[in-house]
């Protein structure tokens, strides 16, 4: 087992002209600077004079030097073109502004951001709290699942946390309710507690060994939390309850389709109700399929 952090060096964002566009631009630029990465701005559709004007006024208001950003524009279907722009430019992190909750009447025609996360082959950063003023990213929650992708994900969280100047990293270990006894009466409740202590000890050892691989030079306080519940949902709710500033998760093992949205599982729970900024770490490990 080894853990290689994704060291993002080419960060892209999609430029729309939504009310949040300016804040998103500011946010992504800050992140790219912190990461020491090259920044790209993609636009799908016709790049008109008006677009150019608005874009320039954004940059000047935000005090960003336009030379530091590569702007690419392409006409066509947003989802398809955005992904092709990513692969053409060797992008390793795509940052998108996303709505915190998907609109219920759009369940079958999701926003571009949501659609892209289903098909993306790059790591994705979904921004929910973009702002023009800098807000520190203090608390990071990362998944600690027993999965081949996890070491890379945690390593990436550590790397990003160091770059963003975060102070706290919580490794959340989601455990299935089914892995321990059900509490039906006094006896089984005691049994459940005993089993959960044993399981948590085992999980603690596993997470310790993963952390041993990837926390060299980490300046953050690292803690772990075991939570029982539905995978995906639980970590999202935890991040919300703990007021985390960033949630880092594994990329999905399969492409997510319509059925996955109706019968929600794993990542779908997070996407349906983003608790905070979410980083989906795309790993190309050959062992990625558990």
């Amino acid at each position: 087992m080894n853990a290689t952090p994704k060291q993002y060096s080419r960060v892209a964002t999609a430029m729309g002209f939504s009310p949040m566009a300016k804040a998103n631009l500011a946010e992504v630029h800050r992140i790219a600077t912190r990461f020491g990465a090259e920044m790209f701005v993609f636009h799908v559709g016709e790049w008109t004079e008006k677009c150019q004007k608005t874009y320039e006024s954004f940059l000047s208001e935000l005090g960003i030097d336009s030379d530091t950003i590569t702007l690419k524009s392409k006409a066509g279907d947003p989802k398809v073109e955005l992904l092709s722009l990513c692969s053409e430019n060797d992008i390793d992190l795509l940052a998108l502004g996303a709505l915190m909750r998907e609109n219920m009447f759009k369940v079958f025609s999701a926003s571009i951001a949501r659609d892209v996360c289903r098909k993306a082959k790059v790591s994705l950063l979904l921004l929910t709290h973009s702002s023009i003023m800098e807000e520190p990213c203090e608390r990071i929650v990362v998944n600690g699942l027993d999965h081949p992708k996890t070491p890379d994900t945690i390593a990436t969280a550590v790397w990003a946390g160091n770059k963003l100047g975060s102070s706290e990293l919580i490794v959340v270990d989601e455990l299935s309710e089914k892995s321990i006894a059900r509490a039906d009466d006094d006896m089984s409740t005691l049994q459940r507690i005993r089993q959960s202590r044993q399981l948590e000890k085992k999980e603690h050892n596993r997470i310790e060994s993963v952390l041993g691989l990837c926390t060299g030079g980490c300046s953050m306080d690292i803690s772990e939390q075991h939570v029982y519940g539905k995978k995906g949902y639980t970590i999202a709710h935890y991040a919300k309850a703990k007021k985390a500033d960033l949630l880092v998760v594994n990329s999905p093992d399969t492409k997510l389709g319509l059925l996955d949205r109706i019968f929600k599982h794993d990542l779908e729970y997070i996407l349906a109700d983003l608790p905070t900024d979410v980083l989906i770490v795309h790993t190309t490990k050959t062992t990625a399929h558990a």
Partner: peptide
């Protein structure tokens, strides 16, 4: 959809959100 989160904040001290 699931709507509850339970975790043990400290030994024998639980938070149910």
């Amino acid at each position: 959809r699931p709507n509850t989160l339970l975790f043990e904040e400290e030994e024998n001290k639980y938070i149910l959100n």
